[in-house]
Computed example of a mutant assay.
Amino acid sequence: MTSEQDSAQNQQEWDDHVSVLLNEVIDYLDPKPGGYYLDGTLGLAGHSEALLKKADGKAHLLGIDRDLETLERARNRLEPFGDNVVTAHARFSEFEMVLRDVNWDQLDGALIDIGVSSMQIDQAERGFSFKTEGPLDMRMDPSGGMPPASSIVNKASYEKLKFIIGRYGEDPMCGRIAKAIIEARSISPIETTTQLASIVEKAYPAKWRAKSRNHPATRTFQALRMVVNSELEELEAFLKRILDHLRPGGRLAVITFHSLEDRMVKRMFKEESTGCICPKQIPVCICNHTPNIKLITRKPVTASPEELKINSRSSSAKLRVVEKL
């Protein structure tokens, strides 16, 4: 396949892209004409397009994304909705700054989808996938000044690499992988995705490789991507402030793909939906904490069997929704 054919195939796949848990998100947010909604991870605008259509094209949407190329494609997709759509190049943790810029304050609904888009994965030059040869980059916003994944792989100490792969990738082989990386880079720098994938694969015991459902490098790549893009820090900053900008009755929907992210969302939603949060050993409440939200989904919503058949990437997606009191 030529590069032109490959590019055309990717373009068709992006045009046909269906966002994960699409129907569930729209049902829970239940957008209304005249409402104000934030999509903090606009991506290819699948969720936003469906939201606007559900509101007969009469809702107001603010779409934020840190990836300039993805943002441009989203703008083109949402062009039929005219001035009802405003987009901004920013991280979702910067949503308050963007709200001020567009003179919005209160929202009727908000959504973030914490995952890598199909477009990012499918472009080898972005370095997100170990399946194709490409530079070891992994930055969602290459213009943002953050160092690429190759910088971490080639400069971090053994202890730091082990921590990153163990903490963010939750890989029990983190020590072996870190050691293998140190040994390989002492011979020559690790600059490509396939180089790193091969190193990680060889670090795994043969029995583990034989039994593994996924490629041995899956968790290492996930861990590096999360660190390069400060994904947990971004999520924490967003969750701490978004509720202040929801109107009473406004809903927040969060889609995660990683257990660390889901646990963070679950913990925050639990704290904000309960009264007293004093330690159990204190017999009388002294925190005076009152519920700020109510849980709409007490357990995470996952992809249906029908969705899993057409989109394998939805298998790890979890949706949690709350409503502002």
Rank of each mutant, 00 (worst) to 15 (best):
S259W: 15
E272L: 13
K266W: 10
C278V: 02
R298V: 04
Q281G: 00
C285W: 07
A303F: 05
C276D: 06
K266F: 11
E306Q: 14
I282D: 01
D262S: 11
L308Y: 15
H258A: 05
K294P: 02
M268F: 14
C287G: 00
K270D: 05
H289P: 04
A303E: 03
C287P: 03
H258E: 09
P283Q: 06
P291L: 09
I277L: 08
Q281C: 01
I293Q: 01
T297D: 09
M264Q: 10
P291Q: 11
M268N: 12
I286C: 04
C285T: 01
P283Y: 01
E306A: 08
H289K: 06
M264W: 11
T274D: 03
K280S: 00
T290K: 15
K270I: 03
R263E: 07
R263V: 06
E307C: 07
N288R: 10
L295W: 14
R298K: 15
D262F: 12
G275R: 15
F269R: 15
P279A: 04
E261V: 02
D262Y: 13
C276K: 12
I286Q: 05
F269V: 09
C285A: 01
M264L: 09
E271N: 11
I277E: 05
K266N: 10
P283G: 02
L308C: 12
G275N: 14
N288Q: 03
V284K: 15
V284E: 10
M264A: 08
S259T: 10
T302S: 07
R298M: 10
P300W: 08
M264D: 03
R298C: 09
E272W: 15
P279F: 06
E307A: 08
K294L: 05
N288K: 11
P291I: 02
I286W: 06
L260M: 15
E271T: 05
N288V: 00
E306I: 07
D262E: 09
K266E: 06
K299G: 03
Q281Y: 08
V284D: 04
V301H: 13
G275I: 04
E261D: 02
T274R: 14
T297K: 15
K270C: 03
T274A: 02
H258T: 07
S259D: 10
R298Y: 13
S273I: 00
